[in-house]
Amino acid sequence: MAHDAVDQEQALASDWGGGGSPFAVGWPKLMMWLFLVSDTLTFAGLLAGYGVVRISLGRWPDRTQVFNLYLVGAMTFILICSSATMAVAVSAAKRGDHRRVIPYLLLTVLGGLLFLSGQAYEWTHFIREGARLFGNPWGIPQFSATFFITTGFHGGHVTVGVLYLLVTALRWARRSIQPESVEITGLYWHFVDLVWVFIFTLLYLI
């Protein structure tokens, strides 16, 4: 990528006056931000749907009876830790500390994989107990339906994130990307974690 050329042109103009980048970010990074904004709205749509059906039904099963909140709490903790390792990888990449980037990226991948296995375990358990998309033993079909759709959509994001992290690690190892690409991967990963915090609160706790 012709970063130098872009930098030169940027230097010539004021931030908003054209010929430059108003937020002093690269195009891919801005694009990732925008994508995350729109993805937020998809999650918001799903969660709003969950809220509306739950409120209009008026009753909802007691989650402490259904889920092992210790397990979910641990999964949440792991995911937050993986955000921390991601942050370390990003700052190492920025500082040019090449040796630390890959290990911390892989730690992040590990966090993601642990989270996914926790989720797989939880789903299996839930399904064994009789939960289906269209119904469940607790008498409120929407309970399991919203659960599967929301956590499934999020789990899909985590899976994509793990693959994305692996690709980033590989490309970093081959020296074919800039530190900013690591940062962009990090943005996505932090977003996925943040969304989980909302899901955790809304689906399990409240």
């Binding site: 042109e9 006056g17 054209g18 010929g19 801005l30």
Partner: peptide, 11 residues
């Protein structure tokens, strides 16, 4: 992205 980032000088 294009409108924010690619306006030419003076625009």
């Amino acid at each position: 992205t294009t409108v924010l980032q690619l306006r030419t000088r003076g625009m």
